[in-house]
Design a protein around this nucleic acid. Structure first.
Lengths: 113, 113
DNA sequence: GACAATGCATAGGAGGTCTAGGTATGGATT
DNA sequence: AATCCATACCTAGACCTCCTATGCATTGTC
């Protein structure tokens, strides 16, 4: 199949949020929850390992900063990260279109890139 | 999160194909490939374990039959299977809508049930 | 002082997919 | 007859991701 190609939806969403500006784990989770209307609640056990993977692969770069006496690790997307994000979005749309094709739930605006 | 939703995309598609009439593994893989326009190529290592899981959970029932000197294991969807399929389709559409919501790729026809 | 919210992190388990291999038949080609 | 491809099933082991559960530390509220 293709769940490998898809990678993880979590990483894709993290990259997408980060592409709009530097953010940190806790905030990122809230942003994803908001933008998915509460559907996704990123758990720490998924979120932080995913951030570490993306950092290790140099799709994100991180730096610590202090604010309000709290330590925050801010993540910024890299050029490679933007390219990866574009690729994953394209793959996601194809994947979703293919699933909907199999199910017969395909919508006009959904199939293509 | 909900990687369960994504992980079970294979099972959902299998159930959907089986809901249209009895079928067997090899044929099922070809049907999924056709209906996804070649996108999904179910590998044996995903296909057969998935069929066995669905059978074990009584969402499919199976019986062996001979045709052309070949042994085929035909799968039929059960009532429980139909209910599960409906549930998963609904979950899938919500999931896809939520992802598209986060990515900003949402289309009008996609978000709801 | 207790508790919730903020903020990061990891360990261990569960669950799914893939690679790679095995078994077997039938038909076509050489 | 030997070889190859398509058909048709199956499994083991590696690999990856997500979740539960837990730990630590600070700030603000009751």
């Amino acid at each position: 199949m293709d769940s490998q190609t898809l990678g993880s939806a979590v990483e894709m969403m993290i990259l997408d949020v980060a592409a709009r500006g530097p953010t940190y784990g806790y905030e990122l989770a809230r942003t994803v929850a908001e933008r998915s209307e509460g559907y996704f609640e990123l758990k720490e056990g998924s979120l932080y390992p995913a951030l570490h993977r993306l950092e290790r692969r140099k799709l994100l770069k991180a730096h610590w900063r202090d604010a309000d006496g709290r330590r925050r690790k801010y993540y910024e997307i890299t050029q490679a990260g933007r390219a990866e994000l574009a690729s994953r979005k394209s793959t996601w749309l194809k994947f979703a279109g293919a699933v909907n094709g199999v199910l017969g739930t395909r919508r006009t605006g959904l199939s293509g890139a």
